[in-house]
Design a protein around this nucleic acid. Sequence first.
DNA 1: CCTAAACTACTAAGCACATAGTATCTAGGG
DNA 2: CCCTAGATACTATGTGCTTAGTAGTTTAGG
Lengths: 128, 128
Amino acid sequence: MVDAGSLGERELDVMTVLWNDGSGTVTEVQENLGVPLAYTTVLTILRNLEAKGFLRREEEGRAHRYFPKVKQRAEQRRALARLLDTLFAGSPEALIAQLVDDHDLTPKELKRIAKRLRDSSADDRGAS
Amino acid sequence: MVDAGSLGERELDVMTVLWNDGSGTVTEVQENLGVPLAYTTVLTILRNLEAKGFLRREEEGRAHRYFPKVKQRAEQRRALARLLDTLFAGSPEALIAQLVDDHDLTPKELKRIAKRLRDSSADDRGAS
DNA sequence: CCTAAACTACTAAGCACATAGTATCTAGGG
DNA sequence: CCCTAGATACTATGTGCTTAGTAGTTTAGG
């Protein structure tokens, strides 16, 4: 199958901890996970993620320290692209509209986003 | 497990066909799927989706016609919320920024979206 | 009436993810 | 030297998704 693309729910949780903290041992990850999981469960997930190329590992004393090998940015992009393709028919407009309609975006946030869009827009029209 | 929440990849493909067309028989769905799947495979997916409550079924002659029971909107919302929570730390801004930065958007689209945001913003501030 | 075609129901195999137990190793304190 | 604590490696179970085959039913045509 060599999907190598999609992370499972828990796998994603674990990756998120590592992205936030930069690195972690099994114990550290276990502690920083929202959900309570057995030590060995966390270890298994980490090993699976390593096998799939999402992490690398360094020895640290008698333990191992795990580091993200892929950037969160890359996963964000991948997941977003997939969501766009599947549920939103490839229309970013539809997605953003949904976001605006469904979420409690404050006017403040909206203004910031609108500004960002305007800036970006300007760039696209001919930066420098 | 009664997850009832997340659709698999193919399940989502099938739902998309039904959302687009309004309804479909096994053969119709099979034909409108991008991927080539055996008739019985499509049937199985449809039955599974029905069992999970995503579809309902009506007899039509000797065949069955399947209808979406959940709205695409609902699934969009669910999937978007989930993506937001997991990979984007609950920040719609970050998500939109990503969308913009990844240059999936033409200036034209950006302008339309910005307008939509402005309108929404106005609403929030107090539409007259 | 009988056969072919279309359709459904039942069954099944393969794989990935979630979860965790047992066995083993290693370092440090008595 | 021995034992305990902490760590990893190996193994295992349950579940869900994907894919599809086989058996059975129903309908239309000859």
